[in-house]
């Protein structure tokens, strides 16, 4: 049997170039500490948008604002023209925004399959009573969605660990399962929070290939937060550099690499070398 391609399993992101997410001047502070201080950006369908910045610059906070986990004091976050601020995280996820986490947030006591099936939650159309009886509809829906999940298992090469408990898997595989769980939601906007943090060269290459495939096959909007500069510069269309919650620069990878403000943020006042190729750790 021929391995299925990703676009045969998941829906396409739609017309390329449409604005899918518009973050407008958001401010978030915790008891006086400004975590996000006036960040604005736009993400389009079929665009890989990267956010870079030193540790503690507020990159994950931006994700949490979009996810509905943090509530910015000011600004607006519009997704497909709809205001997200004030919405519950589960409603935001329902709209088609999926994410992964910096420190893996899988469900450790569930199998790989169950984690991925959980990603299909909103696509499994049956109620609690049907779940108790599990006749007809519930059983059909489970089988139909399992097929989608199996497509992702193939794509990510998780076949041998399908039924393993996530807690038993090595770190690199867990990261991959988490990507799979986010994909299972069939998102139109995918937010990846440091997908290759702590990975070796081979695992990083694999992950980069997955991200590239998702981008070119599905054409969805992707936001990538990452410290691995080589990957960011190779994959991203647009890069936003932030420091202390403030935007420093936005532009193509080449522009960012040569931007003096970005270099200063990474290396301090005295140095003048480009950050390209080096991690920020």
């Amino acid at each position: 049997m021929r391995a299925r391609r990703l676009h045969e399993v998941l829906p396409h992101g739609g017309e390329p170039g449409n604005v899918i997410l518009e973050v407008d001047d958001i401010h978030l502070s915790f008891a006086g500490v400004k975590a996000v201080d006036g960040i604005s950006f736009k993400v389009h369908t079929n665009e890989l948008f990267a956010i870079i910045g030193p540790n503690g610059a507020g990159k994950t906070s931006i994700f949490n604002c979009v996810s509905g986990f943090y509530h910015p004091q000011r600004g607006s976050v519009r997704y497909e023209g709809r205001e997200l601020l004030g919405m519950r995280p589960d409603r935001i996820a329902d709209l088609g925004i999926a994410r992964t986490f910096q420190n893996i947030e899988l469900f450790p006591q569930m199998t790989v399959l169950d984690n991925l099936m959980l990603g299909r939650h909103q696509h499994l159309k049956y109620g609690t009573l049907a779940a108790l009886v599990r006749a007809g509809r519930a059983s059909r829906e489970e089988a139909r969605n399992r097929e989608v999940v199996e497509g992702l298992v193939e794509f990510l090469g998780l076949q041998p660990v399908r039924k393993s408990y996530v807690a038993m898997l090595p770190y690199g595989l867990q990261k991959r399962v988490e990507l799979g769980r986010a994909l299972a939601m069939a998102p139109r906007l995918l937010m990846l929070d440091e997908p290759v943090a702590g990975m070796n060269l081979e695992e990083t290459e694999d992950m980069a290939r997955f991200i590239n495939d998702i981008r070119w096959e599905l054409g969805i909007g992707i936001i990538l937060v990452e410290h691995e500069m080589r990957m960011v510069m190779d994959l991203a269309d647009t890069v936003l550099a932030v420091d202390f919650g403030r935007p420093i620069a936005v532009g193509t990878p080449a522009e960012i690499q040569n931007n003096p403000d970005v270099i200063r943020a990474y290396l301090g006042e005295e140095h003048g070398t480009a950050p390209a190729g080096g991690g920020a750790e």
Binding site: R88, E105, F107, M110
Partner: peptide, 16 residues
């Protein structure tokens, strides 16, 4: 089970 394991992640996966 997702709520039991990690409720915040569960919520961000679309579970009320």
């Amino acid at each position: 089970a997702a709520i039991r394991d990690r409720d915040i992640a569960a919520e961000m996966m679309g579970i009320p």
